[in-house]
Amino acid sequence: MKLFNASHIEVKKDFKEDFQTNPYEAGWADEAIFFIDVEGLSGMNPTLTAAVEISHDGVHWTSEGTVSEPISKEGLHFVRVKHFGNWLRLNCQLEGEQPVFRLNIQLALKG
């Protein structure tokens, strides 16, 4: 029987500049999906790009290589990752003039 866990990483937060999500220990899982729910956005041409980062200890981080499509509209978006070791987080870049994203980010794990 597979194990499943869904955790809220960021809840109803407004982001105005580049950020990294809270890290999550996920070494037991075989696969992960970050769900990025954009509840609102403002500014001129706001765009968010989310890159998966991995860590062996939750302190030192490196790029895993998976990057989301550019996100520039409200709704639910996702990023999948399969081979990630122990810790996961998203490194998010915001572009545009005075971008503001209201986000809920959830991590779904299955093992």
Rank of each mutant, 00 (worst) to 15 (best):
F78Q: 14
P99I: 06
V11A: 12
S55Y: 11
S68H: 06
V11R: 14
T66C: 10
T49F: 04
E31I: 05
L76V: 10
I105N: 03
V38P: 07
K82T: 13
I105K: 03
L107V: 01
E31L: 06
Q98R: 15
G40R: 13
T62F: 09
I54R: 05
A29H: 03
H60L: 06
L48E: 07
D37E: 15
F35S: 06
K16C: 12
P46K: 07
G111L: 07
Q20K: 15
N104A: 03
M1A: 14
S68G: 02
I71G: 05
K2P: 15
L109C: 02
P46A: 04
G43S: 04
F15Y: 14
W28P: 10
N91P: 00
Y24F: 15
T47F: 01
E25D: 12
Q93S: 15
Q98K: 14
F34D: 05
E39F: 04
R89L: 07
S72D: 11
K16M: 11
L90F: 00
W87L: 02
G111P: 05
I36K: 03
I54W: 04
K73Y: 04
Q20Y: 10
P70A: 01
F34M: 02
E25P: 03
H83T: 08
G58D: 10
L48H: 00
V81P: 05
S55T: 01
L41Q: 11
V81I: 12
E53F: 02
I71M: 02
G75I: 02
K73C: 12
N45Q: 09
F4C: 13
E69L: 10
V52I: 12
Q98A: 12
A29L: 05
D30T: 10
N22L: 12
H60W: 04
T21Q: 04
T49C: 08
F35C: 08
L48S: 04
E64T: 02
E31S: 15
G111T: 07
H83I: 09
S42H: 03
D14N: 15
E10I: 13
A51Y: 06
A51H: 00
G43L: 01
V81A: 09
L109I: 02
G27W: 03
E10M: 11
E97R: 09
L48R: 03
F34L: 07
P99K: 05
R102I: 00
S63D: 13
N22Q: 11
V67C: 06
M44K: 09
V52G: 04
G75Q: 03
N5L: 15
E10D: 14
H60Y: 08
L76A: 06
E95C: 10
V79Y: 02
A108E: 12
F19C: 08
K82C: 10
S63H: 10
L48Y: 01
V81W: 01
C92N: 03
V59L: 14
A50W: 08
G65I: 04
L109S: 07
E97W: 14
A51P: 07
R89P: 04
P99F: 00
S7A: 11
L41G: 03
